[in-house]
Design a protein around this nucleic acid. Structure first.
Length: 878
RNA sequence: GCCGGGGUGGUGAAAUCGGUAAACACAGCGGACUUAAAAUCCGCCGGCGAUCAAAAGCCUUGGGGGUUCGAGUCCCCUCCCCGGCACCA
C-alpha cells in the first residue's frame, strides 16, 4: 500500500479486474428484488461532455448503492446512434456517417469505462445497427396494421435553394442555415403515429406516477392540453360562398357564442384557399403566411395579421351573417383550423377586432365588473372572466356555467353543435427526409398502393455507402436500393425513401436492454422481470417529447400484447445542466464576439476573493467576463472531461460532480472545486494508511470483543459515536431522496470526526475508528468506487466492497440522557436550556421560565403564551 | 407569445413537518512546518456596529406585501435568469 494517493494505479487495478471478471453483468434472479437503473443513452457526438459524465455518475451512484443494499441491479448502456450530426459531419469532413458514428462510439465507450461505471456492457445497444432497428421496422408494421400509423399531408420547412427539408434548428431568422435562402412551408406526405388515440390515457396515467417530479407531470399535462368545450358549426352563407356547407370550429367558451362577431380561418384552411383563387391580395397574404418556419415559437411571437374574405357564414343560433377572415394566428393543426371570434371576451380577438375595426359585442358581465366592454380601452384580464350573460337573447341572465350547457343544448337541437373534448396534443409525424435514420419498411406500388415489406425481408437495411450532398434526399438517388418489385404483385415499385424520427429508437430502447440478444423476437419474458425501469435519469430538456413518446410506445406495445404494463419509468430524476463561466473579446468595429476558453483566462480578484477582472493567459490583455452559460461549443466554455480524468482520475471527477450541487440543480463548473475534491480523497487515503499501520493493530481481535467495547465507551467516545451515527442517519435519508451532494458532505463530516477522535483510551479510539472508517468507506463507495475498494481490502474489512452490506444506524448509539432546547422570546432566539430527554411539558416550561433572559423579558408578568416544540425549542410570548 | 422551473454569504451549497439561516466545501486572510516552494496542519471568515481590543445589539434567504407565537419554507404581487414549444438529441 502506497503512502501517497495514486489515483491512476488504483483505478487501473480495479478497472482491470472489472474488465476481466464482469461483476456488473447480471441475469434474472427471481429470489432477489430487482432494480433497473437507467440513464438516458447518449448520442455519439464524438466525445463525452460534462453533462454525460454528470448523468451517468448520478445513475452509477444509485446503482452501486442499491447493489450494496441487496438488489439485483441492472445498469445498461447504449448509443442513440441515428441523427443529423452524422450527416453534418459527412458534409463538413467527408467522413461517411456510419464510420463517423462507429468511431465516436468506440472512443466514448472507452471514456465510460475509464470513469468506472458499473455497467453491464454485455447488453450494449447501438440503434443504427440492423439487429436493433429491424424490430423497430417490425413494430412499425404492427402499428400500421392496427391503424396506429397512417399517412397524411404535413407541413415542413423547405429550403428552396438546397431543395431540402430543414429541421427547426436549421432555420435561423427565417433563413436556411447553409443556403441563407428564405424558408417556406411546404406540404408533403408523411407517416404519423396516432398518439392522440392515447391522449386521455397518457393524461390519466400521470396520476399513477408518484415517483415523477410534479414539474414534469405538469408540463406533460399542459402539453396534452385537454379542454372541454363545444364543437360549433356555422352554415355557409350560400350567397357569398356559392355553395352549401358548414364551417366547424371548436370553442372552450360556448357561453360567449352570442358575442361572436366574425370567424377566422387559418391560411391553409380550404375556405382561405378558395377565396384566394379570385383575390390576388389574399393569395399574397396566404403566401406571406407560408414564409418562415413551422416552429410554434415563431408563429406565436409574430405580429397578428389578417385579411377579410368576401365570404360570410350564418350564426348558428341567430342566423346573423358573420364575415370570414383569414388570420395568421389560427393554427391549422389545432382543432378545426378555424375559430369563432368573440372580441369582447378573448384577448387575441380583442386586439384583432381593434386593429381591423370589427364589432365588439359584450355578452358576459364578469363577476364583480360593472363597466362595459366596447373596445375603446385597452384589454383587461377580467374581460375574459366568467360571469352572467347579458344581451344574449334567451340566455340572458344565466351564469356562464348554465349557459355552457344551455347553448350546447340549443346547438344540438338545431344539429349545429355538441359538447366535445379537444386535446392540444397532435399526432406525431415520424417521417424524416434524411439519410441517417431507420428506413420506413414500406414499398409504394402504382397498382397496390402502400405495401408493407414482408417480415422475411426485414430488416430493410440502410445502405452505408452514399454521397451526402446536403441537397435532396440521398436515399432517393440510390436507384438500386429504391427500385424493387412490389411484394404483392411483383411489378416495379419504389421503396419509401424517408427514414424515421430518431425519437422512435429512444421510445423503446429501455425494453430491448432486457433482451438485447434475442434475434427471434423484439421482446421476451426477461422484459417482465426487469421492467418497468425503477429509476430513470436524464436531462430536463426531455421532460415532454421523449418521455411522452416512450409512455405512448409502452401503451401501444401493451395493446399489441407484447408487454403487460403501461408505464415504462416508475421513478424519474431530471438532472440539471452543467454550466461554466464565459469570457469573450469584442471586435470594436463589427461587434463580433470571440469566445475564450476559461482554461486560457486568469481571474484577478479583490481582497475578498471576488473576481474583478480577467486577462488572457497568453497575451495578458483583458477579456470580458460574460456570465454563466450552459457548456457549449459556441460559447467555448466547455471543460473536457478527458482532461479532468487525465489530471485527477475518475474518482475525483465523480466526487466533484456529486458534491458540487444536488442532482436536479444546475452545476457550476469550478476548477478550484475539483482541487478540493481531490484533496479530500487524498485525506481519505492518508487516513486509510494511518488506520492500517497504526490503528488496526490496536483493535481487539474478535468481532464480539469489538462490539462489547463499543457498548462500553466512555462519555467523550460515546458522544463521538453518536455524532457518527447521526451523520450516517442523515446520509441514509439523503440517499433515499437521491440528494447525493449531502451524502458526499456526510462522508467529509465523518472523516473530520475520525481525524479528531478524543485522546486517551487507545483501544476505544481503535474500536470507534474501525466502525467509523468502515461506515465511511461504504457510504463513499458508490461515489468513488476505485479508491474505496482498495482501501476496504487493504484495511482488512473484506474481500470486496461492491457487495458489502450497506451500513445501518445503531439506535443505541443515538440515545442520550439530556438534550438542549432553544429558548425563544417572541420568536427570537435568546438562549438554550438543557433538559432530560424524557422531560414532560410542565418540567420544560418551568425550566424555561426560570431562564434569566426570560425572567428579564417578563419583568414579573405572566407569559401570554408558551409554545413547546418537542425536542427542538420553546417560544415564550411576552 | 404560451407552458415549466430557479434566485440563500466573495463562490458552490445546507437547513426532516413552518421551529437556532449559512452544515459541508471552495476562494480569501492570518499562523505553524520549511533554507525556500509545494504539500500538509491550525485559526478566522454574511452585513451593520462601537472600539486599543472585545462584547452586547440590530439587520439579512432577488424586491414589495400578507398569514403565523414563529416564514428561506405557505399565500398574493413584482423583477431577473434558465428549460421546453412538436424536424437538435
Amino acid at each position: 500500500m502506497k503512502e501517497k494517493y495514486d489515483a491512476f494505479s488504483i483505478e487501473q487495478t480495479v478497472q482491470n479486474e472489472w474488465e476481466a471478471t464482469h461483476p456488473f453483468a447480471v441475469t434474472e434472479d427471481p429470489t432477489r428484488p430487482k432494480f433497473y437503473c437507467l440513464s438516458m443513452f447518449p448520442y455519439p457526438s464524438g466525445k463525452l461532455h460534462m453533462g454525460h459524465v454528470r448523468n451517468y455518475t448520478i445513475g452509477d451512484v444509485l446503482a452501486r448503492a442499491k447493489r450494496m443494499q441487496g438488489f439485483n441491479v441492472l445498469q445498461p448502456m447504449g448509443w442513440d446512434a441515428f441523427g443529423m450530426p452524422a450527416e453534418n459531419a459527412a458534409l463538413q469532413n467527408g467522413v461517411p456517417p456510419a464510420q463517423w458514428t462507429y468511431s465516436n462510439i468506440a472512443y466514448m465507450k472507452g471514456q465510460l469505462k475509464r470513469l468506472g461505471f458499473a455497467i453491464d456492457w454485455q447488453r450494449e445497444l447501438t440503434t443504427c445497427r440492423p439487429e436493433y432497428y429491424r424490430w423497430e421496422q417490425w413494430l412499425f408494421k404492427r402499428l400500421y396494421q392496427k391503424r396506429l400509423i397512417y399517412r397524411k399531408m404535413g407541413w415542413v420547412n423547405w429550403d428552396p435553394v438546397d431543395q431540402t427539408v430543414l429541421a427547426n434548428e436549421q432555420v435561423i431568422d427565417g433563413r436556411g442555415w447553409r443556403s441563407g435562402a428564405l424558408v417556406e412551408k411546404r406540404e408533403i406526405p408523411m407517416y404519423y403515429m396516432r398518439i392522440t388515440a392515447y391522449a386521455e390515457e397518457l393524461l390519466q396515467g400521470l396520476e399513477t406516477l408518484p415517483g415523477w417530479p410534479e414539474q414534469v407531470k405538469r408540463m406533460q399535462a399542459n402539453w396534452i392540453g385537454k379542454s372541454v368545450g363545444a364543437e360549433v358549426r356555422f352554415p355557409y352563407d350560400e350567397g357569398s360562398i356559392g355553395e352549401s356547407g358548414v364551417l366547424t370550429v371548436f370553442t372552450t367558451r360556448p357561453d360567449t357564442l352570442m358575442g361572436a362577431t366574425y370567424v377566422a380561418v387559418a391560411a391553409e384552411h380550404p375556405l382561405a384557399t378558395k377565396a384566394a383563387q379570385n383575390d390576388p391580395q389574399l393569395a399574397e397574404f396566404i403566401a406571406e403566411c407560408r414564409r418562415g418556419s413551422v416552429a410554434e415559437a415563431d408563429l406565436a411571437t409574430m405580429e397578428k395579421k389578417g385579411m377579410p374574405t368576401p365570404y360570410f357564414v350564418r350564426h348558428p343560433l341567430t342566423g346573423e351573417k358573420l364575415p370570414v377572415w383569414v388570420a395568421n394566428y389560427v393554427v391549422m393543426a389545432y382543432g378545426e383550423g378555424a375559430v369563432m371570434a368573440v372580441p369582447a371576451h378573448d384577448e387575441r380577438d380583442y386586439a384583432f377586432a381593434q386593429k381591423y375595426r370589427l364589432p365588439i359585442r359584450q355578452v358576459i358581465r364578469p363577476e364583480g365588473f360593472t363597466g362595459t366592454i366596447d373596445g375603446r380601452g385597452p384589454w383587461e384580464e377580467r374581460f375574459a372572466a366568467k360571469g352572467r350573460l347579458v344581451d344574449s337573447g334567451p340566455f340572458t341572465g344565466l351564469t356562464s356555467e348554465q349557459a355552457f350547457s344551455a347553448i350546447i343544448a340549443a346547438l344540438a337541437e338545431k344539429g349545429l353543435g355538441q359538447q366535445r373534448v379537444q386535446y392540444r396534443l397532435r399526432d406525431w409525424g415520424i417521417s424524416r427526409q434524411r439519410y441517417w435514420g431507420c428506413p420506413i419498411p414500406v414499398i409504394h406500388c402504382d397498382h397496390c398502393g402502400e405495401v408493407l415489406v414482408p417480415d422475411e425481408q426485414l430488416p430493410v437495411v440502410l445502405p452505408e455507402s452514399v454521397a451526402i450532398t446536403g441537397r435532396g434526399s440521398p436515399l432517393a438517388e440510390l436507384a438500386d436500393w429504391v427500385n424493387v418489385p412490389c411484394p404483392e404483385c411483383g411489378r416495379p415499385a419504389r421503396r419509401e425513401t424517408d427514414t424515421m424520427d430518431t425519437f422512435v429508437e429512444s421510445s423503446w430502447y429501455f425494453l430491448r436492454y432486457c433482451c438485447p440478444d434475442n434475434d427471434q423476437a423484439m421482446v421476451d419474458d426477461r422484459v417482465k422481470y426487469w421492467m418497468p425501469v425503477d429509476q430513470y435519469i436524464g436531462g430536463i430538456e426531455h421532460a415532454i417529447l421523449h418521455l411522452l413518446y416512450s409512455r405512448f410506445f409502452t401503451r401501444a406495445m401493451r395493446d399489441l400484447g407484447l408487454i403487460p404494463f403501461s408505464e415504462p419509468f416508475t421513478n424519474l430524476l431530471t438532472q440539471g445542466m452543467v454550466v461554466a463561466e464565459t469570457f469573450y473579446r469584442e471586435e470594436p468595429t463589427t461587434g463580433k464576439k470571440t469566445w475564450i476558453n476559461p482554461a486560457d483566462v486568469i481571474l484577478e480578484r479583490d481582497s475578498k476573493g471576488r473576481p474583478i477582472s480577467a486577462v488572457h493567459r497568453v497575451d495578458g490583455k483583458p477579456v470580458t467576463i460574460g456570465g454563466l452559460e450552459k457548456m457549449s461549443k459556441s460559447k467555448n466554455n466547455g471543460v473536457d472531461p478527458q482532461a479532468l480524468i487525465d489530471q485527477y482520475g475518475a474518482d475525483t471527477a465523480r466526487f466533484f460532480i456529486i458534491f458540487a450541487a444536488p442532482p436536479e440543480a444546475q452545476l457550476e463548473w469550478s476548477d478550484a472545486g475539483v482541487e478540493g475534491a481531490h484533496r479530500f480523497l487524498r485525506r481519505v487515503w492518508a487516513f486509510g494508511v494511518r488506520y492500517r499501520n497504526e490503528i488496526a493493530p490496536q483493535l481487539p481481535t474478535t468481532a464480539e470483543a469489538r462490539s462489547a467495547a463499543l457498548r462500553q465507551l466512555s462519555a467523550p467516545f460515546a458522544a463521538a459515536r453518536r455524532e457518527l451515527h447521526l451523520i450516517l442517519e442523515q446520509a441514509n435519508r439523503d440517499l433515499a431522496k437521491l440528494q447525493f451532494n449531502t451524502v458526499a458532505a456526510a462522508t467529509m463530516k465523518m472523516l473530520n470526526l475520525l481525524e479528531r477522535l478524543p485522546d486517551g483510551d487507545a483501544s476505544a479510539r481503535a474500536v470507534l475508528a474501525h466502525e467509523g472508517f468502515s461506515i465511511l468507506l461504504r457510504v463513499l463507495a458508490p461515489i468513488t468506487p476505485h479508491l474505496t475498494e482498495i482501501l476496504w481490502r487493504e484495511c482488512g474489512f473484506g474481500a470486496t466492497l461492491r457487495d458489502a452490506p450497506w451500513p445501518e444506524v445503531d439506535p443505541a448509539a443515538l440515545a442520550v440522557a439530556e438534550i438542549e432546547l432553544i429558548v425563544q422570546i417572541n420568536g427570537k432566539t435568546r438562549g438554550k436550556v438543557t433538559v432530560p430527554t424524557d422531560a414532560d411539558e410542565p418540567t420544560i416550561r418551568k425550566r424555561v421560565l426560570a431562564h434569566e433572559l426570560v425572567q428579564a423579558a417578563l419583568e414579573g408578568t405572566e407569559p401570554r403564551r408558551v409554545i413547546i416544540v418537542p425536542g427542538r425549542l420553546v417560544n415564550v410570548v411576552v
